[in-house]
Design a binder for these strands. Structure first.
Length: 271
DNA sequence: CTGGTGACCTGGCTGC
DNA sequence: TGCAGCCAGGTCACCA
């Protein structure tokens, strides 16, 4: 499901309902998502509160006293909050229950998501320690991409989707940003010029910010913490539009597979 | 090191 | 209607 804007939207939707409230229980109905869910979570979070909730890349982190929960939504994960008794349905894998009767519930059809607990600094966790800069942070820019990409033969689309280079750019927004920047996704990363990386970095930022302001992109089943869809889909220019006409030049958009991901671009507008 | 592929899961859609 | 095959917002593990 979710790229950075969807994770950000989810976090904004849940945080005010869960911060600084006493946790009465953690309940899991599934042993394993992408990896095993630690069996000691309830013991370690019960009676504590979430002091801080933040996003790093596509991970959501809840910082408690002496431990942190690390959450990733995978392809189909969702978090939502509610304050009435709702019995869990299929694929609703875990709940965090608070003393004021609010519940945070995780749903994930495909179980590619992650739930882990660490007593260390969560940013040093094995899944987080090698992540690249935040695209909406101040260390991300065209010069950074240019320098990181020298001598790399990988396609520029796979390059910007690599979380060790920059976090949060998934398939939808990679396609969109490359279209806006006029760069063909198949170009070797090391052959994209500094000037083009300046444009590309600003388009990545632009498309992510706009998607956040629209509440993310709902293709099939993404919904935020209040179960509302995102509206960015209406603004997609290439993703999901293979063989349709380019909004810019009216020629037919090409759809190929790159690194096993569907990739759409305009052969005329992107070079 | 790098790039490429398979793996993890479930469900929806397409086409025979 | 049935069923096989393909596809999906991610990303890690493993191979050459």
């Amino acid at each position: 499901m979710p790229e950075l804007p969807e994770v950000e939207t989810t976090l904004r939707g849940i945080e005010k309902k869960i911060l600084n409230k006493k946790i009465i229980s953690f309940v899991s109905r599934e042993k394993k998502l992408r990896w095993l869910i630690p069996t000691n979570i309830n013991k370690l979070v019960k009676g504590k509160k979430i002091n801080n909730a933040f996003r790093r890349g596509k991970y959501i982190i809840f910082q408690l006293d002496e431990c942190a929960l690390i959450i990733h939504l995978g392809m189909s994960g969702k978090l939502r909050v509610f304050n009435k008794k709702v019995s869990p349905k299929k694929h609703e894998h875990w709940d965090l229950n608070f003393s004021d009767n609010w519940t945070l519930r995780y749903t994930d059809i495909r179980k590619f998501g992650v739930l882990d607990l660490t007593k260390q600094n969560p940013l040093e966790h094995r899944l987080l320690k090698d992540l690249g800069p935040e695209p909406l942070g101040n260390s991300f820019n065209g010069l950074y991409l240019f320098e990181k990409s020298r001598k790399k033969s990988v396609a520029v689309k796979q390059f910007i989707m690599n979380a060790k280079i920059v976090v949060g750019v998934g398939n939808i927004y990679a396609n969109e940003a490359l279209f806006k920047a006029g760069i063909r996704p198949t170009r070797q990363a090391g052959k994209v010029t500094k000037n083009q990386y300046e444009i590309l970095s600003s388009k990545i930022i632009e498309v992510l910010k706009e998607a956040i302001s629209e509440g993310g992109t709902t293709l099939k089943d993404y919904s935020n913490a209040e179960e509302a869809p995102g509206y960015f889909k209406k603004k997609l220019e290439v993703y999901g539009r293979g063989k349709q006409e380019c909004f810019n030049c009216k020629k037919e958009l090409k759809e190929i597979r790159l690194g096993n991901r569907s990739t759409v671009y305009c052969n005329n507008c992107q070079s």
